[in-house]
Design a binder for these strands. Structure first.
Lengths: 233, 233
DNA sequence: GTCTATACCGTGATAGAC
DNA sequence: GTCTATCACGGTATAGAC
């Protein structure tokens, strides 16, 4: 419980890949992000990476496992950044310099997401779209990795949000986190329902604009009185 | 502006399909919902429907077009129901029996979604998951249908929400609708981010429970003061 | 251990006979 | 309208070269 910079944060530097494996990984990432998972063929990847087709199944086990490796390489640093934010907030609270309010907790998520969305070298906004796909589809591989390696991240957010909303039951806190993360994910992923219907006045791709509109929405939603009453008239 | 039951609501009864086409449609729907789009092969569909493989490409143009047909058959009645709800609300307001508040407008979306989620004969909750997939992936076919045939539905919700939130600019109203619909979509689709991490105390599949938790969240989020201030302390 | 060539089977799509 | 035959392409597995 010290201000020491978190648990599994800087511990795991991630798996080391051979030169060919790295070339495959880089080529695959670009194509997955650009074309989507199923539209990207292994033959396209290996051609772009200038390696043999069978190298994919040798270094990674399958196309799905390759996707999981691509995903994990970007996700791990981002998740570590989230943990660092939570640690920093806890330290500030312990030092009496901050309080656990809803906005402070959610900013521990927003800041890393914002940084990720803006930095093309980290995969940029397009990586967030990949994450969004993972949510909807059911990639067994990715699912297992997330629950095995990063379950404690969600636990940390749950605890922090519970301290910010002491009047709510733990079940309600879980729902608020569930809903709040859903919005932010959808928002950062740039999936515009309205645009799907051809009627959008929202430019949903500018990260700063997203934050400006999403944060008040999420904070208000999470802080709502439990089912039934609503404060404003 | 009468209480007459809406514009394109009961107008289009949908395309008429031959007996073979209908058998294909029914078989495809079950498999798409159960296995997902790419995991469902045409050979599986035609086998279940007891028709020849080439019949799919004859009656529908392609696998994608078949999916679009399956989708449209369920979506159209649901969208008509949404229009009916909006018409009914307008009529109640015109008669002085109701006011345009955020909750009333959103219930025009929630009630049809709830009915759809609960009625297995309409595709049930699983159909909503298919819709969710369509959002994230980019089905060109479905996208075109939605913007061509149902753009005015979004326009109606935008106008209604604007009347419920007169203090917000039209850009902000669009954002609120965008974010609100995103949450509800994710919620009804049953995509649980927390569960993906293996740490969910939320049973995200019970439609009534979803409504109980989602409505206060969305109403509060949509009613939030624009970027910056937040009401409660 | 690492990389390559190649074969296998299932996929969506199509042409042409009936 | 329907069916058979065939096509190109997909992921995967393996045998063997270095």
């Amino acid at each position: 419980m010290k201000s020491s910079p978190s648990s599994a944060a800087d511990a795991d530097p991630g798996p080391k890949y051979s030169e060919t494996a790295t070339r495959i990984l880089n080529a695959a990432e670009g194509l997955f992000v650009e074309l989507g998972l199923e539209a990207t063929s292994l033959r396209l990847i290996t051609q772009k990476a200038a390696v043999n087709l069978a190298a994919v199944n040798y270094h990674f086990r399958s196309k799905d496992a390759l996707f999981e490796a691509v995903f994990a390489r970007r996700f791990a640093p981002w998740a570590r950044e989230c943990l660092r934010e939570l640690d920093a907030l806890e330290a500030r609270v312990a030092a009496g310099k901050a309080v656990f309010d809803v906005e402070a907790v959610m900013m521990c998520y927003v800041r890393p997401a914002l940084a990720l969305s803006k930095d093309p070298s980290l995969g940029g906004a397009l990586f967030v779209r990949l994450f969004s796909r993972v949510l909807v589809e059911n990639h067994r591989q990715v699912r297992e990795t997330l629950s095995r390696d990063w379950g404690h991240l969600v636990a940390r957010y749950t605890v922090a949000l519970g301290r910010a909303l002491p009047q709510l039951s733990s079940e309600e806190v879980a729902w608020r986190l569930h809903l709040g993360l859903s919005v932010m994910f959808h928002a950062f992923a740039g999936n515009d329902i309205l645009k799907l219907f051809g009627r959008s006045a929202v430019s949903a791709r500018d990260p700063d604009l997203i934050v400006k509109h999403v944060v008040p929405f999420v904070v208000a939603g999470m802080s709502a009185a439990p089912h039934g009453r609503h404060p404003a008239a």
